[in-house]
Amino acid sequence: MADEGRPEIEWRFGPGSKRAPAWVRWTRRVVALGGLAAAVVGIVFAIQFMHTPALLLDQPSDPINAYAASHSASPSPPDVPRTGLWIEVASLGIALPIRDGDGSDTIPDWVALHYPGTADPGNGGNSYLYAHGLRGMFGTLLYAKTNQEVVLHNYTTGVLRTLHISRVVGRTAWNDTSWITEFSPVPLLTLQTCVGADIHSDRWIVQAA
């Protein structure tokens, strides 16, 4: 017989074994691909988790509406001509004139105040701007993401300067002034709002460069 004297192949798995049957190899591939797909899904969820502001993770209600409930303000911006310097973040529905602030807790509605002593917006250095945490003002900074466009538009001179959100710092203590005094060799906007109507509530910080 043709097969006489032919050694019988015995399938063994482990070091020094013969090549596994095709079904075993395909099973291994399917398991490996399944593990890879699970890892990819896990990474995607992790990225989404990291891009969700911590404030929103531990507060199921809308924090902007919660702020509005305790802060009496005009529901819409006043109809004023656009002159001078404005800050505009179209993706977050922000368009506010920039005015000089005095560093006090007296903050008008529908303006972004420039903290005294910080760089002029658009110039070299850290420029600190702050406004109320209401929708249409700086409230939507709670949903900011990196690379979103921030425009400094001077309607008097026609000059436009475009920056992009470079860092979502997130929630900070109300008395943490390190973001005001932060040094920057390049134009940097540090944008701040409150996450509560109390003057001692935490702040929310976003930076654009």
Rank of each mutant, 00 (worst) to 15 (best):
A38S: 12
A197P: 14
V169T: 07
S178G: 09
I9M: 06
P21N: 04
G170D: 09
A46M: 11
A39D: 00
I205P: 08
T172E: 15
I43G: 00
L129V: 08
T83C: 03
V151Y: 00
Q148M: 13
S72L: 12
A37R: 01
V31H: 01
R29Q: 12
D58F: 15
A144W: 04
S70T: 12
S201I: 04
W179L: 10
K145M: 10
G5P: 07
R171M: 14
V41Y: 01
N123G: 13
D120M: 15
V41K: 00
Y143A: 10
T193Q: 03
V168T: 08
D176E: 00
S166T: 09
P78E: 00
T52H: 02
P60W: 06
L85Q: 02
G101H: 07
V30S: 11
L33A: 13
L33V: 07
E149C: 03
V206E: 07
M137Q: 14
L163W: 03
D58W: 15
V44A: 09
A32K: 10
G5C: 00
R25F: 04
W204M: 08
T156K: 06
V40S: 13
P108Q: 12
Y143R: 14
E149N: 04
P116I: 02
Q192M: 15
W179A: 12
L57E: 07
Q192H: 05
G136P: 08
G5A: 02
A2V: 00
P121N: 06
R25S: 10
I43L: 11
N126F: 03
W174K: 11
L36H: 05
V80H: 06
F183C: 13
S178Y: 05
I205L: 04
G5T: 05
V186T: 15
N147S: 12
L160V: 14
P60F: 09
C194D: 03
T156M: 03
F45P: 00
A22L: 14
L113M: 08
G139P: 05
S178R: 13
Q207F: 10
S166L: 04
N175V: 05
V195P: 05
W86L: 06
V31I: 14
N65M: 13
T162Y: 13
R161F: 03
D100M: 10
T156L: 07
V40L: 15
L163D: 05
V41T: 07
L55V: 03
F13D: 06
T181P: 06
T140C: 15
L188M: 12
R28P: 01
L163N: 04
H153C: 01
G124W: 00
F183N: 15
T172P: 08
